[in-house]
Design a protein around this nucleic acid. Structure first.
Length: 388
DNA sequence: TCTGGGGTCCTAGGACCC
DNA sequence: TCTGGGGTCCTAGGACCC
């Protein structure tokens, strides 16, 4: 593969930063976005603080001031309240985050069109054509140009990594947060990447890193020097070999500028666990509601789906799923509800329930489906196996 | 006071087909 | 009594990511 210049752009504390545009008076103070409902501010105060919150929910984003107190995204709110009781608690406004997400992505595309979406607050960008033969100094200039353009368009800051591939750029963008630009080439790997925890590799999560620790492997460098046979023995052929390559900074994945959705789902965690018998009516209402919301989402995206899935989480956090593939793809709430209802009958209901979810997968575009089905008739009659 | 919500991808077994 | 080799689809669970 020829030399490439791939950028990873990551918005800094995205949700919290969008909120600070609205409430600039909170700038410089610990604040978090999260919670399941609007929390009442105490008498005389403009905003609730973390200590005012009771109930379920996690931190979605914390400002850097809150992070300094040990609060991270994903942390339960009640636990965060112990660490930072005075931090401001702001409710999430996803519509607003989506607006800013579109804005920063449009801004980047106007400068560098080869953009891969990686969720609401990050993207990969292939800069190879823009850099040409001008090499790393030019890559650095383009990254700065992108950063300035995003700030001018949105008022928000971002961090950028530029390296020969997505894997390294993802790591690099995190090295000088917030507001940093980190440019690395393959020769920089031993000095800049190998000292990092293996957990920094995108794709090595809590389970895999714990198992690596048990093997005495803590850093990326130790992973790079590990015997590939040992990794394959412990993690399987594919994952083990991938890990070893990743530790050496090898990654040939291309920047993908377009992809179709594979599934659409809605789920909800109850404020209090519900009893399958005593709370039957409420559960049924919530269940129907989820199906209607999924149907709305399908309609809005112009797709239908054939595999209907149910997700249920018990009070002990154990999660089960069931799915059912129906004869014809659907976008209809009642049809989804019926299929999901059949799934529900196959699940044990002997404990309180914490979460209920509905998913529709095997998606297709209604018109394209029949057109393809018609085309499929011909080749089948001409296969090699017809006379078996 | 444990642990949100929306996704993707992988694995593995069984059914079924040619 | 023994006996293939694909391929695809379906289902359940789990790891991981943002």
């Amino acid at each position: 593969m020829p030399n490439r210049y791939i950028a990873h752009l990551d918005m800094d504390a995205f949700y919290a930063s969008v909120e600070l545009l609205r409430y600039p008076q909170l700038r410089g103070q610990p604040a978090v976005v999260g919670g399941r409902r609007r929390t009442q501010a105490p008498e005389g105060a403009d905003f609730p603080r973390l200590r005012d919150y009771t109930g379920r929910g996690v931190i979605t984003t914390a400002t850097y001031e809150a992070r300094a107190l040990g609060v991270h995204s994903g942390m339960g709110l009640m636990k965060a309240a112990k660490l930072a009781p005075d931090a401001w608690l702001l409710p999430a406004d996803f519509d607003q985050y989506r607006r800013y997400s579109r804005l920063f992505k449009e801004t980047v595309r106007a400068i560098a069109p080869l953009v891969e979406d990686r969720g609401i607050d990050e993207i990969y960008i292939d800069l190879t054509n823009l850099v040409g033969d001008a090499a790393w100094l030019r890559a650095q200039e383009i990254a700065l140009q992108l950063q300035v353009a995003v700030r001018d368009a949105t008022g928000l800051s971002c961090s950028i990594g530029v390296t020969p591939n997505k894997l390294l750029s993802k790591i690099a963008s995190d090295l000088q947060k917030p507001g940093g630009i980190t440019v690395l080439c393959m020769d920089d790997i031993p000095a800049r990447i190998w000292p990092l925890s293996a957990r920094k590799i995108n794709g090595i999560g809590p389970k895999a890193s714990a198992r690596l620790e048990a093997l005495g492997i803590h850093t990326v460098g130790e992973l790079a020097n590990a015997d590939p046979a040992l990794l394959i023995e412990n993690f399987g052929k594919n994952y083990g070999a991938w890990m070893h390559n990743a530790a050496h900074g090898r990654d040939e994945r291309v920047v993908v500028t377009y992809s179709e959705p594979k599934s659409i789902s809605r789920e909800t965690t109850f404020e209090d666990d519900l009893h399958p018998v005593r709370d039957r009516d409420r559960l049924s209402q919530i269940f129907t509601d989820l199906c209607m919301r999924v149907a709305d989402d399908l309609k809005r995206k112009g797709v239908v789906g054939k595999t209907i899935g149910l997700k249920l989480r018990y009070d002990n956090f154990k999660t089960v799923t069931r799915d059912r593939t129906i004869d014809a793809p659907t976008g209809d709430a009642a049809t989804i509800r019926r299929a999901a209802g059949e799934c529900l009958k196959r699940v044990p209901l002997d404990r309180r329930i914490r979460l209920l979810g509905v998913r529709v997968g095997a998606l297709s575009v209604p018109g394209a489906e029949t057109a393809r089905a018609a085309k499929d008739v011909r080749p089948r009659s001409a296969t090699l196996f017809d006379d078996l």
